[in-house]
Design a protein around this nucleic acid. Structure first.
Lengths: 244, 244
DNA sequence: GTAATAGTGTCTATCAGACACTATGGT
DNA sequence: ACCATAGTGTCTGATAGACACTATTAC
């Protein structure tokens, strides 16, 4: 359009590039609640939002990272030590205003980590801490526009849980149907009818029984594992159609 | 981690930044088929994929664009002259391999344009042309990884059409229920039962009748418009649950 | 009248939700 | 025996799909 600097649109080295980051929203379930992992912003003077909580993430490293998902996996590994949980892109946000250092774009992913028995487990990185999610939010103020990003990730998770097998990735490999139902209930924050739940899960061929039961102070429960651990299962209908 | 260039992680001006682009997948329905708008890559020697077809898009302009969606709207306007059709982000793709000029990330949006009667209409940009979509693809070879991006956009559109009012944005403001049903059938590439369709549409309060009918060589049809043109409507269930 | 599309009514199979019931372990 | 949780059976209301039917215009 403007002919003052015609080369600018051809030579990529002349083109101004936004700061590019990847942020990862890492979910797990602890103590009957959905939690998200947050890190502390560094306390050095040249960093914005110093000392605040933020989503784990940072600049794309063009040497280390082959692609965006690889970058997300690297950041996930850094903060949790976990190799390959469920990882999905939420979307990207970019603009002049979101980072005081200039035009920036972030690519947001969310990950699901199996719930561990001990809450302090799975956080080798000392600056990272699990925060419970209470009605679509977290109680601390977040750096940048991370509150918005987190809300979008929660929204995506809740929506998708209605018609997919996602909550299975919040459990260890072997689980009972009650465990699985419980994960759905925690994420959706409502109770599900047991009989309907089991019918759906079996109809979708989501799980297969293994040759073990879990004992307890009551009737032992059959243990299951995912039929196809690699592939997410879509239910033909949502769990509980909302009457309008 | 590596302490050789400690400032690199603090000073944003030192950090290498990927090339950043926005691509827009613009859909419309022409002659009973879903079409997508594709442009010609410039034929200059320093441009990659010269002369090939590609999705309309290009580098983010940090002066002109306040944010990514603004950038997408600008590119949409450039190629179609249209102000504000339906626009939604599909996601982002980035990596070392997708652009020969280096590490690049693109933010992909899709737009829905009302079907026009004359196919040559609505394309003021001379390098842009409508291409029909035939089983998830287009017949020409596309530049970069645009075939993958297009496939993702088609997938998103098809999925979402099953349970939302999206096809209404492929129509002009006033339309008959048969028009609307037809848009669903074109996008989903299958026929829908008339009675069930009407029941659903009314139950969701998607449309409201206006004081006009469309005459023809047969019984005139009631004209409708969207009840809330700004808000996309979600149906409680999908259109046709697939038996597994 | 006929052709053609608009629009409605009825039946049925399916399935979620509610709820009660049975089963099986520990104590 | 009793408790607690696992797991099943049965009924009902909502709804999608099939399909036949009626309605209204141009010719």
């Amino acid at each position: 359009m403007e002919m003052t600097q015609p080369l600018a649109s051809f030579d990529p080295h002349v083109i101004e590039r936004p700061l590019t980051t990847v942020d990862v929203v890492i979910f797990t379930v602890l103590e009957q609640r959905l939690h998200v992992l947050l890190v502390l912003r560094p306390d050095t003077p040249e960093e914005p939002f110093k000392g605040m909580r933020a989503l784990p993430g940072g600049f794309v490293d063009m040497q280390k990272d082959d692609d965006l998902e690889g970058c997300a996996r690297r950041k996930l590994q850094q903060k949790t030590g976990v190799r390959s949980p469920y990882l999905e892109q939420v979307g990207s946000w970019g603009g002049i205003k979101r980072d005081p250092r200039g035009w920036s774009a972030t690519h947001v992913y969310f990950a699901l980590l199996p719930a561990t028995e001990s809450p302090e487990d799975g956080t080798p990185s000392s600056d990272a801490k699990w925060f419970p999610i209470e009605n679509q939010r977290v109680s601390v103020k977040l750096a940048f526009d991370h509150a918005k990003l987190l809300e979008a990730a929660i929204q995506r998770l809740r929506n998708k849980v209605e018609y997919t097998s996602l909550p299975a990735y919040l459990l260890p490999e072997e689980f009972t149907l009650s465990d699985l139902q419980h994960m759905y209930e925690v994420v959706l924050e409502r109770s599900i009818e047991k009989s309907a739940f089991r019918t759906r899960v079996f109809a979708a061929n989501l799980v297969e029984p293994i040759d073990k039961v879990r004992a307890g102070p009551n009737r032992p429960a059959q243990l299951y594992r995912l039929s196809q651990p690699k592939e997410i299962v879509y239910f033909p209908r949502t769990f509980s159609p909302r009457k309008i």
